[in-house]
Design a protein around this nucleic acid. Structure first.
Length: 267
DNA sequence: ATGGTGGTCCTACCA
């Protein structure tokens, strides 16, 4: 089974690229963030044609929006809200293969947090920190570490030194500040989540999933950040078979600023 | 130090 996560930055605009990515990554399941599309305009026909007969999604006009596209049945779809806010940033479903649940899948889009890394001066940064805090409490309150679970998404935090192009320069930049990393780590530890990327690309290697649109030559500058993640609970760790970032997709025509990432399971 | 780009939807707002 191959599972991909991609911040698509408009599912309507980039449905053709999605088809290429689905084929290229041979994905059975694709989780999207920033679909930016109200549910009534979700591009079902194009996605059905890609072979994803099972879809769970929640969207709104212009902002946010998450979707799970699957070749396997999805059950018990849950649309969750954090921070007493109606934003479409968390959707979950049970993935069913051969009549049995293989895992409970959670697709997240954590707030980006604005520019100023100060929760007093910047409400967006406060929202981001509060959102992560809520997740840290919510998962253990609603699930057990012994469950087979997967969390994917644009978590908008690059936690490790080699998850950014320059650790020292990035310490004051939202996405890599110490307070974000501290809360991110607490969230990860709360369920003993396994970071599937770092199972295959150790901490001493640079690994990114996002490159700014504003860079003149994003590939040459390579000032990336690893903002997107695929985590699994401990019972799934032995089923991890590989991980890759489709960096090439960042260089395709009219790209998202995020590259897709794929984890392969022997499930 | 600043501004650099892109999506949505028409005016800013978000990333």
């Amino acid at each position: 089974m191959r599972l991909t996560s991609w911040n698509i930055n408009s599912v309507r605009l980039r449905a053709p690229l999605l088809a290429e990515i689905a084929e290229y990554t041979k994905s059975d399941i694709i989780c999207l963030q920033e679909t930016k599309t109200p549910d009534e305009f979700f591009p079902h026909d194009e996605i059905e044609a890609m072979g994803f007969k099972h879809r769970a999604f929640t969207g709104m006009k212009s902002y946010n929006g998450v979707a799970i596209l699957s070749k396997y049945p999805l059950e018990d779809v849950r649309i969750e809200h954090r921070c007493e806010n109606a934003d479409c940033r968390h959707i979950a479903a049970r993935v069913i293969k051969d009549g049995k649940e293989v895992f409970d899948l959670h697709n997240l889009y954590i707030p980006a947090g604005g520019y100023e890394p100060d929760p007093v001066a910047n409400d967006k940064f406060k929202h981001k920190l509060d959102f992560v805090d809520e997740l840290t409490e919510w998962f253990p309150a609603n699930h057990k570490k012994s469950e087979k679970m997967v969390v994917v998404g644009d978590l908008n935090i690059a936690p490790r030194e080699n998850d950014v192009w320059d650790h020292k320069k990035m310490l004051k930049v939202v996405s890599h500040t110490p307070v974000e990393v501290e809360k991110f780590t607490a969230f990860q530890n709360a369920m003993d989540w396994v970071d599937s990327a770092r199972e295959f690309y150790p901490d001493d290697q640079k690994l990114y999933t996002w490159w700014s649109y504003r860079a003149k030559d994003w590939a040459a500058a390579d000032k990336g950040r690893r903002l997107d993640h695929i985590w699994v609970t401990q019972p799934l760790k032995k089923h991890l078979k590989g991980h890759s970032v489709l960096k090439d997709a960042r260089g395709w025509d009219r790209p998202s600023d995020h590259a897709p990432l794929t984890t392969e399971f022997d499930l």
